[in-house]
Design a binder for these strands. Structure first.
Lengths: 193, 193
DNA sequence: AAATTGACTGAGCAATCAGTCAGTTTGTAG
DNA sequence: CTACAAACTGACTGATTGCTCAGTCAATTT
């Protein structure tokens, strides 16, 4: 593995586990097994390194999402929503570090000042929220889901599922043991009656 | 106002807006209009200052909660849940800084190592989650809410509502415009059918 | 062989950090 | 007034921060 890749890999872990400010470039260099200045050879500033990581996260998520879209088939829209929730939770489990990074305050604060950062964040969130909204839209066409605002309901479901992931990260509650109840709750929320 | 109170007030704002590490005691002193060492006269360390603030947050929330309990009366459990959601959102609006502080990673990370911090956090979360669980329990007794795990459903509702508050903080979506849909979703989720 | 490149390094910089300490001011009780 | 403690301050420290820079080295191009 090249030094640059090693830096990116270790920086992702450090930024997600300790936060932006608490991650020192000296420690990152030590973990990577390189000189401190090597980091600044590959990345102009600490912030540029962070943006590079965020770009990686975005690309990984979008790739994962596209693969999921191709592979999955559902009987109706309601099942599609359930599939989307499963995908989100699986995604968060598979990419624990990356999701913890997104859940930190720093990327959102940087997004206020840095358009590129905002682009990355919006692309990631839009990907997930749109996934829910599309599924709801399908469900409304095939009659498995009742009349409601697809977009707003998508935001509510996202908020719900993302909260579970946070429960996990903070060791407040095991998200897995809530899975069945979340699916059941959504079904009741959405079902055409 | 005493210097100590001024320090606490400004520190709450700074910690919530900039985060723990990004808040420098020098800047806090400047804003408070006192010498840097005055902070360390009143609070032994930066961490002790933070814990003092967290204790304040806990006490404020519990007080607010008790007042709410006394003042409010509901027809049935389902309406009680809706009232609880309103209370949570109102609370988050009234104490924006304090809620942003709770949403940061630092208190949760400190809680892993510091029992006192964990106590404060657990008291705060338990207050809200129990509020939802109790309301659900009442609803199940009076028949307005169906058969489901009160505690688990309370966690799901909390996760949902807390996510809305986060949407607001990060300027991703206006929580107010989602309010009606959230209430409607919960009603469907809980209703006895 | 000479020139050029990209990857990498060690030494060191100015700035900032939380925290200390000796000493001064302030309030209050006798 | 004196006495005394609590409140407060400015000057300071050692450690750490992100970042710079001159220069080394191996591989590639001319």
């Amino acid at each position: 593995m090249s030094k640059k890749q090693a830096i990116l890999l270790n920086a992702t872990k450090l930024f997600s586990q300790k936060g932006y400010k608490d991650t020192s470039m000296a420690e990152l260099a030590k973990r990577t097994g390189s000189a401190g200045s090597t980091i600044f050879y590959h990345f102009k500033t600490k912030e540029a390194l962070f943006l590079s990581i965020l770009k990686n996260v975005r690309e990984t998520i979008i790739t994962d999402f596209n693969r999921y879209l191709k592979e999955s088939r559902f009987e109706n829209g309601l099942e599609m929503v359930e599939g989307a929730i499963s995908f989100y939770l699986a995604c968060a489990g598979r990419m624990e570090d990356q999701f913890r990074l997104l859940h930190r305050h720093y990327p959102h604060e940087l997004a206020q000042a840095n358009p590129l950062c905002r682009q990355h964040l919006e692309a990631i969130y839009e990907c997930f929220i749109d996934m829910f909204a599309q599924a709801i839209g399908h469900g409304q066409k095939d009659g498995s889901i009742g009349i409601l605002s697809a977009r707003k309901t998508a935001l509510i479901i996202f908020s719900m599922v993302d909260g579970l992931v946070r429960f996990n990260t903070y060791n407040l509650y095991d998200a897995g043991s809530l899975y069945d109840e979340v699916i059941e709750s959504c079904r009741k929320m959405l079902k055409n009656s």
